[in-house]
Amino acid sequence: MPEDAVVVVPAVWAVLAGVILCGLAFFAVALDAVLSARAQGVGGGWVTPLSRTARLLRQRRRKTVAADTLLWRVGGVGMFIGAFLMVAVIPLGKWTLADLDVGVVWFNAVDVVVWALVWLVGWGANSTHSLVGGYRFLAHGVAYELPLMFALAAPAIAAGSLAAGEVAAAQEGLWFVVWMPAAFVIFLIGVMGFSVWGPFAPALSADIAGGVRAELSAVDRLIFQAGRYMFLAAGAAFSVPLFLGGGAGPWLPGWAWVLVKALAVLTVLVWLRRKVPLARPDRFMEIGWGILLPAAVVQDLVVSLIVVWGG
C-alpha cells in the first residue's frame, strides 16, 4: 500500500466539492435537455437548468389532504443532501475531503439510504400514484442493490483496501475496468438505479401520473430532481477511482483527469436514457437476480483468483 495515496484537504474545501458536484449535475440536466430538443428537431436546451430552476422557485407549493409532511420533506431534502455525502470520499486527483478507510462502504451506505428517501417521498404525499411509484422503486432496489454490492467488492478485493484513494492508486498500469468489465457495467446499472434514472425511471413514469413526484411541486420538486441528477453525477464520479484509474492520465494533472473521466461517464449515462427502454420492476427482478448477481459473483471470483495467484 502506498503511504501517501491521497492528501486530506481542510474541510472548507467541501464548498468547492459541492460546487463541482452541482456543476456536474447542471451539465447532466443541460445535456439531457439538449438531447431532448435535438430529438424533437429543435436546437438549444443549454439554459434549461436555469429556466427550470427559476420556474420551480416561483411556483406555489401544492398541498395534498392529510399528507405526512414531515416524512415527505425528509425524503426530498435527503435526496439533495445524500449526493454531497457521497462525493466526500471521492479523491480529486490526490486531494480528498475525507480519507475514510472504508470509503467504498460509505458510498454503499449512502446509496442504500436512497431506498428510504424515494419511498418516503412517494409515501408522504398521501397520493396513490406517488405511493405506487415508491413501491416500484423499492422493487427495482431489491433487484439492483445486491449485484451493485458485489460489483463494489471487485475493485476492493483487487486493491486490498476499502479506501477510495488506495483503490485508485492500486490501478497503476492497468485500470480495473479492463479486467473487471462485468463489475463496471453492473456498477453503472446500480448508479442509474439509485438515481431513478433511465431504465429505472418507472417509479417516475407518466403511466402513474409522474409516480413519486406526482404531487411534488415548487422547491420540493426542485430539490428532489436536483438530488437525482446529483446522485447520477456522484455515481459517475465514483466510478473514476473505482474502475477508471483515478487521476491517472498523460499531460493533464490528476484532478483534471478525474473531472474529464467523470464527465465522460456522466455523458454516457445521460445519453443512455433515451436508448434503453424502461425496465418493468417485476421483469427486472429476474434480470437482477438471474443474470447480474451471478455475473457479479463470478467477477469477484475471477478477481480473487487473480489476486491470490497473480500476487
Binding site: 478507510d101 472504508v102 462502504v105 454503499n108 451506505a109 442504500v112 439510504v113 419511498w119 423499492l138 442493490e145
Partner: peptide, 21 residues
C-alpha cells in the same frame, strides 16, 4: 469502528425500507 458503523447503518436502513412496505 468505521466498518461496523457503516454496515449497521446500511443494513438497518435497507431493512427498515423493506419492513415499512
Amino acid at each position: 469502528q468505521s466498518y461496523l458503523g457503516l454496515i449497521t447503518i446500511l443494513m438497518m436502513v435497507m431493512e427498515m425500507a423493506v419492513m415499512a412496505v
